[in-house]
Design a protein around this nucleic acid. Structure first.
Length: 266
DNA sequence: AACTGTCTCAACCGCATAGCG
DNA sequence: TCGCTATGCGGTTGAGACAGT
């Protein structure tokens, strides 16, 4: 037995939305706000399931959507974020105000994938296509654990961003994406990659995380009494702040800021 | 003009998980 | 603690637009 359907399919419309349906949905959300998607269709007089309403609103009707071509800067940001986060489209969308996860996912699949391939880069792994030394990592989702991206030329003398993700194909300790950022001096990426190919188990992941932050800090509890960072308190806590996403990629915003956006309804 | 192949993107589907009683 | 429901997410599909022949 499968799970029961999310709605009474016999009495719901499917497919493209009509102008009238859009108007009804917009009018209802303006009056009552988002939420209660299950009951919304009935209340709004729509013959749609709640999921469909939610998707239509989020991906198409929301007033804060940009709805234009992606800029070159957005392209590059998406590529960087994808190399760090993998196919976590909603997290990526959280970094691109006015863009939806669906839009970015489509754009990735239709444009950016091709762009990377034309550059000779595997869009799944963000490594050179002919880089056979990493063939074991050729998979649909990029290796989300311990990903580093090389700084651009002009960034090489600056800090180097390294991401530790405890949810990865090789370590499934935590059910939620838990990005832990550390900032360290520039180092030799090649060396580290070789080292990690040999390690590759949870214990080693934990060790490498522990080098930068204590457990409390890695959870974002940098003011906790449990903090036991051996490192200089100031710098380690600055790192912890970056781990919680305050300055992720220099954007200084909350990773999920779009979710907390106030609806700007007229 | 008609046909065919390709591309794009809105929408759907199913699963995971948070929240609640 | 358990079971159920609602919501969110990522993968996939398919209709329509467009380009090429």
């Amino acid at each position: 037995m499968g799970r029961s359907p999310c709605c009474e399919k016999a009495h719901t419309n499917k497919g493209a939305w009509t102008k009238e349906e859009d108007d009804r949905l917009i009018a209802y959300i303006r009056a009552h706000g988002e939420g209660c998607w299950r009951s919304l269709p009935k209340a709004a007089g729509l013959l749609r399931c709640g999921k469909s309403c939610r998707l239509r609103w989020i991906n198409y009707l929301r007033p804060d959507l940009k709805r234009g071509n992606f800029t070159e800067e957005e392209d590059e940001l998406i590529i960087k974020l994808h190399s760090l986060l993998g196919n976590k489209w909603s997290l990526i969308a959280g970094r691109l105000p006015g863009r939806t996860d669906n839009e970015i996912k489509n754009y990735w699949n239709t444009h950016i994938r091709r762009k990377l391939l034309s550059r000779g880069i595997d869009p799944a792994t963000h490594r050179p296509l002919n880089d056979s030394s990493h063939h074991n990592q050729l998979q649909e989702s990029p290796p989300a654990a311990t990903i580093s991206f090389a700084p651009k030329q002009e960034e090489k003398d600056n800090v180097f961003v390294e991401v530790k993700d405890s949810k990865s194909p090789t370590s499934e300790r935590c059910p939620d994406l838990n990005l832990e950022l550390t900032i360290s001096p520039p180092h030799h990426q090649e060396e580290e990659e070789e080292e990690e190919e040999e390690e590759g188990d949870d214990e080693e992941d934990l060790k490498s995380i522990g080098r930068s932050l204590c457990f409390a800090c890695s959870l974002g509890l940098q003011n906790s009494k449990d903090c036991s960072c051996a490192l200089d308190a100031t710098t380690s806590h600055a790192n912890a702040a970056s781990a919680t996403g305050y300055d992720f990629l220099g954007l200084k915003t909350n990773p999920l800021d779009y979710r907390s956006m106030q609806m700007k309804l007229n």
